[in-house]
C-alpha cells in the first residue's frame, strides 16, 4: 500500500529523463536520417541536389545490379563488390584489434596491480592528438624515404635501392586501423575482465579443468558482454572508415565511405549516394540486431 503511493509520483516524472536525449536523437539523428531515405527514391539533379518526383527503386536496383549479360567483359556486381570489400575490411580490422586487445586487457586486468591506472592512461595519451595527425605520422615512419627505412639504410642493413615498401599497401592500412581503433576494443574488454570473479577461476581449477578449459568455459563466456561491446564499437565505425585507406593505402581501394563521398562530390548523384548510404545503414542495423540477439543468448546461458 505505502509502496504504491511512493511509486506513483516517481513514474509520472521518470519520462522527463528521456527528454534531453530524445530531443538530441530526434534533431540530430532521426530527422537527418529522413533526408537520405527520401532522396534515395527521388531523381538526381545533374547539377547537384535532387528532384523530388518520379520516386522509384531505381537507385537500389542500380546498387544491387550485377550486369550478368556482360559478365566476361567488365560486368560484375560493381557496388556489391565495394560493399563486400568494405565488410571484409571491417571484419579483418576488428579481428586485428581483438587479437591484440584481448591479451593486453587480460594482462592489465589481472597481472599489473598498482600500475594499472598508469598503463591505462598511457594507452589513452596518443589519442589526445588528432586522428589525422596520428595517421599522417605513420606516413613519416613507413615511407620509402621515411624514418624506418632511412634508419635501416644508415645502419647498412638494407641497400639504398632496396628499401622495404611498407606504405601504400594492405599492411599499412591494417596497421593504421589497429593502431587507431585498438582502445575501442581494449576498454570494454578490460572492464569485463576486471570484474571477473577470480574465485570462479579457482573453482574451475579445483574441479579439474586445465588452463585452456578454464579460459574457454569460464573466462570467455563471462567476458562475452565486453567482447560483444568491443566488437560492435570497432566494427561499426570501421564500415564507414575511409581516411586510413586513403592516407596509408594510397587510395588504391574503394570503401563505402569513399563511394558515398564520390557520389555527392564528383558525380553529383545525390540520390544514388543516398541509396548507397541507406543500404549501408540497413545492413548495419541488421548486423546489430543479430549481434544483440546472440549476445543476449550468451548472457542467459552463463548466468
Amino acid at each position: 500500500m505505502t509502496a504504491a503511493t511512493i511509486k506513483r509520483p516517481r513514474r509520472s516524472y521518470a519520462w522527463l529523463l528521456l527528454v534531453p536525449a530524445g530531443i538530441w536523437y530526434l534533431v540530430f539523428f532521426l530527422i537527418p536520417s529522413f533526408f537520405p531515405l527520401v532522396f534515395s527514391f527521388a531523381q538526381s539533379d545533374p547539377t547537384g541536389g535532387v528532384i523530388l518526383k518520379d520516386f522509384s527503386l531505381a537507385n537500389y536496383a542500380r546498387f544491387l545490379d550485377c550486369n550478368f549479360l556482360a559478365w566476361n567483359e567488365f560486368g560484375e556486381c560493381i557496388y556489391l563488390k565495394v560493399f563486400t570489400q568494405t565488410i571484409v575490411f571491417a571484419l579483418f580490422g576488428t579481428l586485428g584489434c581483438l587479437l591484440l586487445a584481448y591479451p593486453l586487457a587480460y594482462f592489465l586486468a589481472t597481472r599489473v596491480g598498482k600500475w594499472r591506472i598508469t598503463l591505462l592512461v598511457l594507452i589513452i595519451i596518443p589519442f589526445w592528438t588528432s586522428f589525422l595527425i596520428r595517421t599522417y605520422a605513420w606516413v613519416v615512419l613507413l615511407a620509402d624515404q621515411g624514418l624506418i627505412n632511412s634508419f635501416l639504410v644508415n645502419l647498412g642493413l638494407i641497400a639504398d635501392d632496396a628499401r622495404i615498401p611498407m606504405l601504400y599497401n594492405p599492411f599499412a592500412v591494417y596497421l593504421g586501423i589497429v593502431y587507431n581503433y585498438l582502445p575501442l576494443m581494449i576498454f570494454p574488454l578490460y572492464v569485463s575482465l576486471e570484474r571477473l570473479d577470480k574465485s570462479l577461476l579457482e573453482a574451475s581449477k579445483d574441479l579439474g579443468a586445465d588452463r585452456f578449459a578454464t579460459f574457454r568455459q569460464v573466462t570467455l563466456p563471462l567476458t562475452a558482454p565486453g567482447l560483444f561491446t568491443g566488437i560492435l564499437l570497432t566494427f561499426i565505425p570501421l564500415t564507414g572508415e575511409y581516411i586510413v585507406p586513403a592516407i596509408l593505402g594510397g587510395s588504391k581501394t574503394l570503401l563505402m565511405g569513399n563511394l558515398v563521398a564520390n557520389q555527392f562530390l564528383q558525380s553529383r548523384d545525390w540520390s544514388f549516394g543516398s541509396a548507397s548510404s541507406v543500404m549501408l545503414i540497413l545492413i548495419l542495423v541488421a548486423f546489430i540486431l543479430i549481434w544483440y540477439r546472440a549476445s543476449e543468448g550468451q548472457e542467459v546461458e552463463v548466468v
Partner: peptide
Amino acid sequence: LPGDCLQAREELWTKLKS
C-alpha cells in the same frame, strides 16, 4: 558532362579502384 556520362565515369572509377 551530362548526368548519365558522369555516372558512367563514376562506375569506371569504382571498377578501377575495387
